[in-house]
Design a binder for these strands. Sequence first.
DNA 1: GATTGTTTAAAACATCCGTTTTCATGGAGA
DNA 2: TCTCCATGAAAACGGATGTTTTAAACAATC
Lengths: 225, 225
Amino acid sequence: MAQSDTVTRILDTAEVLFAERGFAETSLRNITSKARVNLAAVNYHFGSKKALIQAVFARYLDPFSERFHSALDALEARYEGRDIPLEVLLETMATTVLEVPAERNSLKVFMRLLGLAYSQAQGHLRRYIQHEYGDVFSRFTELVRRATPDLPDAERFWRLHFMLGTVIFTLSGLDALRDIAEKDYHQQVSVRDLVRRLRPVVVAAMNAPLPDEKDMEPHADTVAH
Amino acid sequence: MAQSDTVTRILDTAEVLFAERGFAETSLRNITSKARVNLAAVNYHFGSKKALIQAVFARYLDPFSERFHSALDALEARYEGRDIPLEVLLETMATTVLEVPAERNSLKVFMRLLGLAYSQAQGHLRRYIQHEYGDVFSRFTELVRRATPDLPDAERFWRLHFMLGTVIFTLSGLDALRDIAEKDYHQQVSVRDLVRRLRPVVVAAMNAPLPDEKDMEPHADTVAH
DNA sequence: GATTGTTTAAAACATCCGTTTTCATGGAGA
DNA sequence: TCTCCATGAAAACGGATGTTTTAAACAATC
């Protein structure tokens, strides 16, 4: 067998099974038998199951991080210090996200993995991702901050995560939603179609009026310093 | 020990552990030892682990379904056949959702369980919920349909699920987001505060302009020049 | 007061798990 | 050629899991 073909086969199989059933529900025997490699190969090449999981993420996030940095470089160069409009930033991120897994035609897998990482138990994966790729996201959120100067920092933080939830939930649960949608409306749903529907919703959500102050909670206000 | 106190203790412990670590990662020995109950008690009272999981859901969804039906009854009576405004419908659902787990102070647990059910592997839980509580949701979506007559059916379907994703993702990942938010902004975040922030975002998202028809085609050029 | 349903304790069952080990084969580079 | 490394097959390790069983207590009801 060719050099390290085994590594690729393990990763290809593992990411699909992880996305389908989660990490704990996927055994190394599941992976190695479906990938037709030796059981010991995982521990030989990756060291442990946990390291395998991180390698699966790295294979998506490394190229994403690199491309997104480049895309932001290009944007900043084009706008020459002027603020980049929110729509352009969101569009750029969407494009990059769609580009990366396109080669393996597995955006759904990518999104399910992200959702799993977020909802993971002790969050050791979230910490790994934050530590490894935090700078790209910081750079992005800083640009979003300049694009929405009227939005209080806390409000922007929450709305970005609201929209992150929308995207991850929708694209990671794509199969389930597709089932329901096609049963109810007899229509095909493509990822591009979904992204098209998402765009105005996300923009409108980010630009929504600020919440009413009057039903603010009466607890001791924490003064920022 | 009092009659069936064991059942309650099992359910109380199981829902917390399930929400924290997922179903597969929570063993019956975890549950029974933390609940200070005999290991065999789960199989004695519920029959199997799968039945336990469904019982955990039923304890939330039974009262929710009943209260939500009542709330919708009251709304329909008050509006006497006139369409109920979207804001009122959303507010009613939010109120009911907040009411149910309030007694146990565990909205987060409720939301995490819902999120787990959605993202579950083979979706046997989703099917169980759909089969058991589908009528309430159908009733709600029908009222939403009348409240948004200008929205195409497919568009409304997707936007409702977009917002479902927002709410489930936010409230189920509350601890993680709270960590980040408090580290970045040194502010306390309560559930009521989050719901207050969610309201205008959800309304704006539902009322967003329809997606552009022009980038419906094979592939639109994405990034602005 | 006997019966019935709960609860506990303890042990065992058969599986499955992640990981390690041993032995053998073959290819690649020094 | 010899050495290193990847791969394979097979087995075993220790441990955890869901489930079942047996035994003995306890409480409530008829």
